[in-house]
């Protein structure tokens, strides 16, 4: 009863609960939060003592791989779904509070959360429960590619096929959408994390040096590319040399990273090919004419559009502000709920 009253003082939120980053879009305000999905947990008074949240978000991410024994920085999401239920709930609670910071009442917003289209009923239920546990008065779910397509501004209501590829931290989702509904969707567990992993493995194999996840991510962002380009970028990296056991620095160039990323990239390409194979021919023709739209953080990998375009022969377009597409699309879908449009939502 009181929750309904509190809802009046809370904004409707659309949450892109991603493996790497969590974004929150507040209705009427835009993106209000963009933080890494990382929680640092401190173990108080010995191993059997109580646990407390040390930090959440950006602050916790800076601790990743740099924590003392009593603090562990963990990523509660894995492959787009919840790996640690309690921690996810705490993280969501923290984020929801953060966007309602200057409110007198405890927030109790309506929340729309995006879920990977390949997630199971149990995983969806877990996401719903954790959002409820974090204080949401009502929880809606939407499939990530649908939210991404809405956020990218695709004309999904038309009786024409639109294809969207959302490359997130844990998963990549490809979907063909027509008439507000998903015609075909597939989810592969390849995303930004797999790119980082591939870089770590490549460096270890070829340089005999260990680098951390944060370094790998930095390498990917700075010199990573998906297609051989005319110019070669270089950067200096520090890592621990396995033979000597001491930190050493060395130079990496973009062609090496391109080589390192071959395996995860080919996984994404084959997912897109499989989607095109399974798309009904009429919609396939629409997609070929209009093009494939890239969203998600993975779309920022240099020349990924070129690679997909060369491999599939389709025009490939990167959406505006691809990182926030899902959250923004979720926000739009949330507004549609009040207008009676629940076509977009996932029915449990």
């Amino acid at each position: 009863m009181f929750g309904r009253f509190r809802r009046l003082f809370s904004d409707d939120l659309s949450i892109d609960l991603g493996t790497a980053n969590t974004l929150i879009y507040a209705r009427g305000q835009g993106i209000v939060l963009n933080e890494p999905s990382v929680v640092a947990i401190r173990q108080e008074r010995g191993p059997s003592g109580p646990k407390t949240i040390a930090a959440v978000g950006m602050e916790a991410k800076n601790m990743l791989g740099r924590t003392p024994g009593n603090i562990s920085a963990i990523r509660p999401m894995k492959d787009g779904v919840i790996a640690d239920f309690t921690v996810t709930e705490k993280m969501l609670q923290y984020f929801i509070h953060k966007v309602h910071q200057n409110r007198f009442l405890r927030p109790s917003p309506r929340v729309l959360v995006s879920v990977p289209c390949g997630s199971t009923q149990v995983e969806r239920r877990a996401i719903k429960e954790s959002a409820s546990g974090a204080g949401a008065s009502e929880v809606f779910l939407i499939e990530e590619p649908m939210a991404a397509a809405i956020g990218a501004g695709l004309p999904i209501g038309e009786a024409r096929g639109s294809m969207v590829l959302d490359i997130g931290g844990g998963t990549s989702e490809v979907a063909v959408i027509s008439l507000n509904g998903i015609v075909y969707s597939a989810s592969v567990r390849i995303g930004g994390d797999r790119f980082d992993e591939a870089i770590i493995n490549y460096v270890r194999r070829n340089y005999g040096t260990l680098i951390g996840e944060s370094t790998a991510e930095r390498i990917k962002k700075e010199i990573g590319s998906a297609f051989p380009g005319t110019e070669v970028h270089e950067m200096e990296v520090w890592g621990r040399n396995q033979a000597e056991g001491v930190p050493r620095h060395f130079m990496l160039n973009s062609n090496e990273i391109l080589e390192a990323l071959q395996e995860p990239l080919s996984g994404i390409v084959s997912a897109v090919r499989a989607a095109l194979e399974k798309t009904p021919p009429e919609l396939g023709a629409d997609v070929a004419e209009r093009g494939l739209v890239l969203t998600g953080g993975g779309a920022l990998l240099r020349d990924l559009d070129k690679l997909l375009s060369e491999e599939t022969g389709l025009p490939v377009i990167i959406a505006d502000d691809p990182l926030t597409c899902v959250a923004r699309g979720g926000g739009t879908a949330l507004e549609m709920i009040d207008e009676g449009g629940r076509d977009f939502l996932v029915l449990e």
């Binding site: 501004g153 004309p155 209009r290 093009g291 739209v293 490939v316 377009i317």
Partner: peptide, 12 residues
């Protein structure tokens, strides 16, 4: 059909 496509080609 949508601004996203036009902008995509402009970027291209």
């Amino acid at each position: 059909p949508a601004a996203v496509f036009a902008r995509g080609y402009v970027r291209g």
